[in-house]
């Protein structure tokens, strides 16, 4: 499997993701946001961080940067895309995923472990998890409150596009339906607020995130 990690000005989890991908067996190409083409790859990662200083709206500037035209085209052609935290915000802003990530309900930046339920396991990202397994992955965000209109929420449920939910009582931001991560209708574009790369080896307190990278590696190789 070949992977590309997009680096925006203000990305700060790009190297963490690269470390996880290397541990899973592939050294990713790091691609600067100003590029207009992408190397051949099976997976594109939009990492966490504060692209463009979160100016205007989180992810809005990054969604309009030159490389994103190519990312959107590749996604439409079937390339897997993983957006983590700020990457999830970019995916909603560029229209690959529906809805929007709003300011956290309690107006606080939340940085802590959260308990997640894996609600869908037939994606390249989650097939190594058990159905409805509870895992622990940290969040670190100020705008993670997933919002979409009622029709969209009904559609997300009906089409089984909700992949991760915060476990009962552990919703850190007020997200609708406790949504922590969703896919597009194909299951190949995943956006999630929690950071699997921050809990991907025992030295970091746990390795629940590791299976996501191993899973992608296994399925896309």
């Amino acid at each position: 499997m070949r992977a590309a990690v997009i680096v925006f000005p203000g990305s700060n989890c790009d190297r963490d993701v690269a470390v996880c991908l290397e541990a899973a067996g592939t050294k990713p190409d790091m691609v600067w946001h100003g590029e207009t083409s992408l190397p051949a790859c099976d997976l594109i990662v939009l990492p966490g961080g504060f692209s463009y200083g979160d100016y205007l709206r989180c992810g809005s500037m990054a969604a309009n940067s030159p490389v994103m035209r190519e990312v959107v085209a590749r996604a439409h052609a079937g390339t897997a895309v993983l957006g983590i935290c700020n990457g999830f915000q970019v995916l909603t802003e560029c229209g690959l995923l529906p809805g929007v990530l709003m300011r956290n309900r309690d107006l606080n930046f939340v940085c802590r472990n959260t308990r997640l339920n894996v609600t869908r396991t037939d994606t390249p990202f989650t097939h190594l998890y058990e159905a409805d397994e509870e895992i622990i992955i940290p969040v670190a965000h100020n705008e993670g409150n997933y919002f979409a209109d009622d029709d969209t929420l009904v559609r997300l449920q009906g089409e089984n596009q909700i992949v991760f939910t915060y476990a009962s009582g552990d919703n850190p931001n007020g997200a609708s339906l406790d949504i922590a991560g969703i896919t597009d209708p194909t299951g190949r574009v995943l956006g999630m607020m929690p950071h699997p790369e921050r809990r991907a080896e025992k030295a970091l307190g746990g390795a629940d995130g590791r299976r996501m990278f191993d899973g992608v590696m296994e399925m896309l190789s």
């Binding site: 205007l56 809005s60 909603t92 209109d149």
Partner: peptide, 9 residues
């Protein structure tokens, strides 16, 4: 529509 507002919200 393209940048300044997010018409979802």
């Amino acid at each position: 529509e393209k940048l300044l507002a997010n018409t979802v919200i």
